[in-house]
Simulated scan of single mutants.
Amino acid sequence: MLVGPPGAGKGTQAGILCERLSIPQISTGDMLRAAQAAGELPGELARQMAEGGLLPDEVVLELIDKRLRADDCRDGFLLDGFPRTTAQATGLDGILGNQGAAIDVVVALEVPANQLIERAVYRRADKKTGKIYHLKSNPPPAGVELEHRSDDHEDVVRQRIENYEAMTAELLPFYEARGVLRRVDGVGDVQTVAERVRAVLPPD
Protein backbone atom coordinates (compact mmCIF):
# COMPACT_ATOMS: atom_id res chain seq x y z
CA MET A 1 0.00 0.00 0.00
CA LEU A 2 1.19 3.52 -0.84
CA VAL A 3 -0.10 6.50 1.11
CA GLY A 4 0.80 10.15 0.93
CA PRO A 5 -0.65 13.60 0.32
CA PRO A 6 -1.87 14.65 -3.14
CA GLY A 7 1.09 15.23 -5.42
CA ALA A 8 3.51 13.10 -3.39
CA GLY A 9 4.12 10.78 -6.35
CA LYS A 10 2.05 7.79 -5.27
CA GLY A 11 0.83 7.05 -8.79
CA THR A 12 4.31 7.24 -10.31
CA GLN A 13 5.91 5.04 -7.65
CA ALA A 14 3.00 2.61 -7.79
CA GLY A 15 3.52 2.21 -11.53
CA ILE A 16 7.22 1.43 -11.04
CA LEU A 17 6.53 -1.10 -8.29
CA CYS A 18 3.73 -2.84 -10.15
CA GLU A 19 5.83 -3.27 -13.26
CA ARG A 20 8.69 -4.74 -11.23
CA LEU A 21 6.47 -7.06 -9.16
CA SER A 22 3.96 -7.87 -11.93
CA ILE A 23 0.96 -6.95 -9.78
CA PRO A 24 -1.95 -4.59 -10.53
CA GLN A 25 -2.04 -0.99 -9.33
CA ILE A 26 -5.36 -0.18 -7.68
CA SER A 27 -6.04 3.54 -7.45
CA THR A 28 -9.38 4.59 -6.02
CA GLY A 29 -8.80 8.05 -7.49
CA ASP A 30 -8.54 6.59 -11.00
CA MET A 31 -11.53 4.35 -10.36
CA LEU A 32 -13.65 7.24 -9.11
CA ARG A 33 -12.63 9.53 -11.98
CA ALA A 34 -13.52 6.79 -14.46
CA ALA A 35 -16.90 6.33 -12.77
CA GLN A 36 -17.44 10.09 -12.86
CA ALA A 37 -16.51 10.32 -16.56
CA ALA A 38 -18.87 7.45 -17.33
CA GLY A 39 -21.70 9.20 -15.50
CA GLU A 40 -21.86 6.45 -12.88
CA LEU A 41 -21.51 8.76 -9.88
CA PRO A 42 -24.59 10.64 -8.63
CA GLY A 43 -24.34 14.40 -9.21
CA GLU A 44 -23.81 15.28 -5.55
CA LEU A 45 -20.95 12.78 -5.21
CA ALA A 46 -19.36 14.06 -8.43
CA ARG A 47 -19.48 17.65 -7.13
CA GLN A 48 -18.08 16.59 -3.78
CA MET A 49 -15.15 14.83 -5.45
CA ALA A 50 -14.44 17.82 -7.75
CA GLU A 51 -14.20 20.04 -4.67
CA GLY A 52 -11.60 17.78 -3.06
CA GLY A 53 -13.93 16.21 -0.51
CA LEU A 54 -13.93 12.60 0.61
CA LEU A 55 -16.69 10.34 -0.68
CA PRO A 56 -18.74 8.09 1.63
CA ASP A 57 -16.82 5.03 2.79
CA GLU A 58 -19.45 2.63 1.50
CA VAL A 59 -18.98 3.97 -2.06
CA VAL A 60 -15.22 3.52 -2.03
CA LEU A 61 -15.23 0.19 -0.19
CA GLU A 62 -17.72 -1.26 -2.66
CA LEU A 63 -15.39 -0.34 -5.52
CA ILE A 64 -12.39 -1.86 -3.72
CA ASP A 65 -14.22 -5.08 -2.80
CA LYS A 66 -15.25 -5.65 -6.40
CA ARG A 67 -11.79 -4.85 -7.75
CA LEU A 68 -9.89 -7.12 -5.35
CA ARG A 69 -11.98 -10.09 -6.42
CA ALA A 70 -10.64 -9.85 -9.99
CA ASP A 71 -8.36 -12.64 -11.20
CA ASP A 72 -5.33 -10.37 -11.61
CA CYS A 73 -5.27 -9.71 -7.84
CA ARG A 74 -4.77 -13.36 -6.86
CA ASP A 75 -0.98 -13.06 -6.65
CA GLY A 76 -0.94 -9.67 -4.96
CA PHE A 77 -1.79 -6.04 -5.62
CA LEU A 78 -0.77 -2.53 -4.70
CA LEU A 79 -3.24 -0.04 -3.25
CA ASP A 80 -2.48 3.52 -4.38
CA GLY A 81 -3.83 6.13 -1.99
CA PHE A 82 -6.32 3.92 -0.17
CA PRO A 83 -7.43 3.67 2.60
CA ARG A 84 -7.70 7.33 3.57
CA THR A 85 -9.27 6.96 7.02
CA THR A 86 -9.10 4.48 9.87
CA ALA A 87 -12.74 3.61 9.14
CA GLN A 88 -11.76 2.67 5.59
CA ALA A 89 -8.76 0.74 6.91
CA THR A 90 -11.05 -1.26 9.17
CA GLY A 91 -13.42 -1.86 6.25
CA LEU A 92 -10.47 -2.98 4.15
CA ASP A 93 -9.48 -5.44 6.88
CA GLY A 94 -12.91 -7.02 6.56
CA ILE A 95 -12.69 -7.25 2.77
CA LEU A 96 -9.21 -8.78 2.86
CA GLY A 97 -10.12 -11.13 5.70
CA ASN A 98 -12.96 -12.53 3.62
CA GLN A 99 -10.47 -13.20 0.82
CA GLY A 100 -7.73 -14.68 3.02
CA ALA A 101 -5.37 -11.76 2.37
CA ALA A 102 -3.70 -8.99 4.37
CA ILE A 103 -1.60 -5.86 3.87
CA ASP A 104 2.08 -6.64 4.44
CA VAL A 105 3.70 -3.20 3.91
CA VAL A 106 2.41 0.39 4.01
CA VAL A 107 4.77 2.92 2.43
CA ALA A 108 4.14 6.57 3.40
CA LEU A 109 5.68 9.07 0.98
CA GLU A 110 6.51 12.31 2.79
CA VAL A 111 6.78 15.65 0.91
CA PRO A 112 6.54 19.23 2.33
CA ALA A 113 3.24 21.02 1.60
CA ASN A 114 4.81 23.86 -0.43
CA GLN A 115 6.31 21.37 -2.87
CA LEU A 116 3.05 19.47 -3.12
CA ILE A 117 1.20 22.61 -4.17
CA GLU A 118 3.74 23.44 -6.89
CA ARG A 119 3.65 19.88 -8.21
CA ALA A 120 -0.12 19.95 -8.53
CA VAL A 121 -0.53 23.46 -9.91
CA TYR A 122 1.86 22.70 -12.78
CA ARG A 123 0.66 19.14 -13.36
CA ARG A 124 -1.21 18.36 -16.59
CA ALA A 125 -2.66 15.17 -18.07
CA ASP A 126 -2.68 14.11 -21.72
CA LYS A 127 -6.37 14.01 -22.63
CA LYS A 128 -5.88 10.99 -24.91
CA THR A 129 -3.48 8.79 -22.94
CA GLY A 130 -3.83 10.05 -19.37
CA LYS A 131 -0.04 10.42 -19.12
CA ILE A 132 1.00 12.98 -16.52
CA TYR A 133 3.35 15.88 -17.29
CA HIS A 134 4.73 18.80 -15.26
CA LEU A 135 4.99 22.11 -17.09
CA LYS A 136 8.32 22.93 -15.40
CA SER A 137 10.15 19.68 -14.74
CA ASN A 138 8.63 17.34 -17.32
CA PRO A 139 6.95 19.35 -20.10
CA PRO A 140 4.89 17.52 -22.74
CA PRO A 141 5.96 17.20 -26.37
CA ALA A 142 4.49 19.61 -28.90
CA GLY A 143 0.94 18.94 -30.01
CA VAL A 144 -0.26 17.14 -26.88
CA GLU A 145 -3.73 18.23 -25.76
CA LEU A 146 -3.53 18.79 -22.01
CA GLU A 147 -6.03 18.83 -19.21
CA HIS A 148 -5.61 20.55 -15.83
CA ARG A 149 -7.70 18.39 -13.52
CA SER A 150 -10.12 20.28 -11.31
CA ASP A 151 -8.65 18.61 -8.22
CA ASP A 152 -5.19 19.97 -9.13
CA HIS A 153 -6.20 23.63 -8.80
CA GLU A 154 -4.42 25.35 -5.90
CA ASP A 155 -7.45 25.95 -3.68
CA VAL A 156 -8.60 22.36 -4.09
CA VAL A 157 -5.08 21.02 -3.50
CA ARG A 158 -4.80 22.97 -0.25
CA GLN A 159 -8.09 21.47 0.89
CA ARG A 160 -6.95 17.97 -0.11
CA ILE A 161 -3.70 18.43 1.84
CA GLU A 162 -5.67 19.53 4.89
CA ASN A 163 -7.91 16.47 4.52
CA TYR A 164 -4.86 14.22 4.24
CA GLU A 165 -3.17 15.69 7.31
CA ALA A 166 -6.34 15.28 9.35
CA MET A 167 -6.65 11.70 8.12
CA THR A 168 -3.08 10.62 8.82
CA ALA A 169 -3.31 11.84 12.39
CA GLU A 170 -4.93 8.44 13.00
CA LEU A 171 -4.20 6.35 9.90
CA LEU A 172 -0.41 6.22 10.05
CA PRO A 173 -0.33 5.32 13.77
CA PHE A 174 -2.96 2.65 12.94
CA TYR A 175 -0.48 0.88 10.64
CA GLU A 176 2.59 1.81 12.68
CA ALA A 177 1.10 -0.06 15.62
CA ARG A 178 0.95 -3.15 13.40
CA GLY A 179 4.62 -2.82 12.49
CA VAL A 180 3.95 -2.51 8.74
CA LEU A 181 4.45 1.24 8.22
CA ARG A 182 7.55 2.46 6.37
CA ARG A 183 8.15 6.22 6.01
CA VAL A 184 10.00 7.32 2.86
CA ASP A 185 11.33 10.74 1.85
CA GLY A 186 9.41 11.58 -1.34
CA VAL A 187 11.58 14.56 -2.35
CA GLY A 188 13.90 13.92 -5.29
CA ASP A 189 13.83 12.57 -8.81
CA VAL A 190 11.63 9.59 -9.61
CA GLN A 191 14.39 6.97 -9.62
CA THR A 192 15.92 8.19 -6.36
CA VAL A 193 12.57 7.93 -4.60
CA ALA A 194 11.96 4.53 -6.23
CA GLU A 195 15.23 3.26 -4.75
CA ARG A 196 14.21 4.50 -1.31
CA VAL A 197 10.88 2.71 -1.63
CA ARG A 198 12.52 -0.50 -2.75
CA ALA A 199 14.91 -0.37 0.19
CA VAL A 200 12.04 -0.59 2.71
CA LEU A 201 10.21 -3.47 1.01
CA PRO A 202 10.72 -7.18 1.63
CA PRO A 203 12.89 -8.99 -0.96
CA ASP A 204 11.06 -9.80 -4.21
Rank of each mutant, 00 (worst) to 15 (best):
L2G: 02
G4A: 13
G4H: 08
G7H: 06
G9D: 09
G9C: 11
G9N: 07
A14V: 13
G15N: 15
L17W: 11
E19S: 15
L21T: 11
P24I: 00
Q25R: 15
G29M: 07
M31R: 05
M31K: 05
M31I: 12
R33N: 09
A34Y: 04
Q36C: 07
A37C: 10
G39V: 11
G39E: 13
E44V: 15
L45G: 06
A46P: 06
A46F: 03
Q48A: 14
M49E: 02
M49C: 08
A50I: 04
G52N: 04
L55S: 08
P56E: 05
E58N: 12
V60W: 00
V60F: 00
L61I: 07
L63H: 01
L63M: 15
I64D: 02
K66N: 03
K66M: 00
R67T: 12
L68A: 09
D72K: 09
D72I: 12
R74Q: 15
F77L: 07
L78T: 10
L78E: 11
D80F: 12
G81Q: 06
R84K: 06
T85V: 12
T85S: 15
A87V: 14
A89M: 07
T90K: 11
L92V: 05
L92Y: 02
L92K: 03
L92C: 02
D93F: 04
G94K: 12
G94F: 02
G97Y: 04
A102M: 09
I103D: 07
V107D: 03
L109Q: 04
P112E: 12
N114M: 13
Q115Y: 12
L116V: 06
I117E: 11
E118D: 15
V121E: 01
R123C: 02
R124L: 08
R124W: 02
G130D: 03
G130R: 01
K136E: 10
P139E: 13
P140Y: 06
P141N: 10
G143P: 03
V144F: 07
E145S: 04
L146F: 07
H148Q: 07
S150Q: 13
S150T: 14
D151A: 09
D155M: 08
D155H: 12
V157Q: 00
R158K: 14
I161V: 07
Y164Q: 01
M167V: 03
T168Q: 13
L171V: 14
F174I: 05
A177H: 11
R178M: 10
G179S: 11
R182N: 06
V184S: 02
D185C: 00
D185G: 00
G188H: 07
G188S: 09
D189C: 04
A194M: 08
V197D: 00
A199D: 12
A199Q: 12
D204Q: 03
